[in-house]
Design a protein around this nucleic acid. Structure first.
Lengths: 135, 135
DNA sequence: CCTTGACCTTCCCCTAACTGGAAGCCCCAT
DNA sequence: ATGGGGCTTCCAGTTAGGGGAAGGTCAAGG
């Protein structure tokens, strides 16, 4: 398979696949003409990577996960721990974003949104918090 | 004030403050010795930026917000719209992260986490989804 | 046989928002 | 005058690729 084929079948852009080779996540063979030549196992790895990335794992996590996947003597505890650490990072991000969302929602609700300059959002950013004197 | 003072009072690292000058968000004066010399208004702007950044606004949003803040003829509708657009970006991120969290949580729960190699997390990533045959 | 277009290659620069570090000047205290 | 801390600029690196240029390759059509 050429890169275009695996790109289509894995759902990853060709650029991304070249990048993954660059950083050593995959090692496709080369044809006589210099083209990358992908085997089924390469495609399988790329699909693995695409799923792991879609779950938000970093590239380095993906490298570790691939290594564990190929290591028949792995302990599932190692995989689980990696996933749990990633999970807690995600939960932190969710919490942070929810705090932003809550504050922003309140500010937006307080803002008239008309053609006058008076704006509680700007007042809040400027440190003169009011916005209906929230307790 | 020197940069160390405004750094402490604004809560922003000196590096960040220099960066903000670099990209034109602030324009502190210079003392005879070449040191940046910050006025109260500069400190005020930095605090404004720090709050806007903490709410997740991009630097370019911050630039716009600062401009609106200093424009006495602004319409609060412009501020509100910017905030609403940002809010919807945040909500999208939250939704995406929650989907990741839900999937990961399920996978982690299915994984024994012992010293055996069998692992539903890796099976899922490899495309052989099982994990208690979720409907 | 030649050309055209699609595909492939490498290479380099660009992103956001900083952070780290090196080399060197300035100021104050001892 | 010397030591330490603070200040300056500049360069490089971070994540995970994306955009695009310059050029090689292949199959089909005229």
């Amino acid at each position: 398979m050429n890169i275009g084929d695996v790109a289509e079948r894995s759902g990853l852009p060709a650029k991304t696949i070249r990048y993954y080779e660059d950083i050593g996540l995959i090692r496709p063979h080369r044809s006589a003409n210099g083209y990358r030549c992908f085997a089924e196992t390469d495609l399988h790895k790329l699909a693995f990577l695409a799923r792991a990335r879609a779950l938000g794992f970093t590239i380095e996590d993906c490298r570790t996960l691939l290594g564990l996947y190929e290591d028949e003597t792995r302990a599932s505890a190692d995989v689980k721990q990696l996933a749990q650490e990633h999970l807690s990072i995600i939960e932190t991000k969710i919490t942070d974003l929810q705090a932003m969302r809550d504050t922003l929602t309140e500010l937006v609700q307080c803002c008239a949104g008309d053609n006058r300059p008076d704006c509680p959002i700007l007042r809040d950013l400027a440190g003169e918090s009011d916005c209906q004197e929230r307790v």
